[in-house]
């Protein structure tokens, strides 16, 4: 049943992504000032949102693990963080490609870029910590604590960066600006692609979660076998 759900989710996500690609590449016009490169934004911002959603869920699952001590939450926490990291990387890399074309440089030490890089590093550290602890109970507990620290620190870094001046383009979504800064069709496309990427993320998380549960089962069986 679970397997079939995963397959179904995969097919829907793939179809949705193809539909989005068709609309954004063939139907929507070029942006006035930037030309065709602006389309990278359809992956840049949704990638960031998807990564941030994953990291947020990672924090929630970690708290749930500490409260309930159920393995399921630990498995979910590692799955969402592992899936979130490539989406955060997608955000960084698409941003760099865009920056190369529009700004003429791959990287600038702009606060928002720096903050995004810092959070990617922090979550990479989380995954490293997990790999380094052999005992499963200690691993689950310590990495849950690290995830809570990590999430707090990421929010704090972003907030503290608001006090800097920034080179990064200002928010364009009508949610933040009250409308008028972005063509509605383009804004819709952003949300569509966010949904598609979220579906993709959900698919990866489901697969990774399955894997993690099985790995845990093997681990405990091995322990049992060694105990005799």
């Amino acid at each position: 049943m679970r397997e079939k759900l995963i397959y179904a989710l995969g097919i829907v996500a793939a179809l949705y992504l193809v539909r989005n690609l068709y609309v954004m590449l063939l139907q929507l016009p070029d942006e006035l000032a930037q030309g065709p490169i602006y389309r990278i934004f359809y992956f840049h911002l949704p990638g960031y949102f998807t990564g941030a959603t994953c990291f947020f869920l990672g924090g929630v699952f970690s708290i749930l693990y500490l409260v309930t001590r159920k393995w399921k939450w630990d498995s979910l926490a590692v799955s969402v963080t592992e899936v979130g990291l490539p989406f955060a990387a997608m955000n960084l890399i698409t941003g760099m490609i865009w920056g190369r074309i529009i700004w003429g440089i791959w990287w600038t030490w702009d606060p928002r870029l720096t903050a995004a890089l810092i959070s990617a590093l922090i979550y990479a550290g989380y995954l490293m910590l997990r790999k380094a602890i052999p005992d499963p109970t200690e691993r689950a507990k310590n990495s849950a604590v690290m995830a809570i620290f990590a999430f707090t620190s990421v929010i704090f870094t972003y907030k503290s960066n608001e006090w800097f001046r920034t080179q990064h383009p200002a928010p364009v979504l009508s949610l933040r600006t009250g409308g008028g800064t972005i063509e509605p069709a383009m804004e819709w496309m952003l949300f569509h692609n966010w949904m598609a990427l979220l579906m993709l993320a959900a698919l990866f998380i489901a697969i990774r979660w399955n894997q993690e549960e099985r790995r845990r089962e093997i681990e405990s069986l091995r322990r049992e076998a060694l105990a005799y």
Binding site: M128, L129, T157, S160
Partner: peptide, 17 residues
């Protein structure tokens, strides 16, 4: 095992602010 190495890797990004 790699305590001396892991600690700075984990902690410096947190300390940046």
């Amino acid at each position: 095992h790699l305590r001396e190495l892991m600690l700075p890797v984990l902690v410096y990004p947190m300390l940046i602010p």
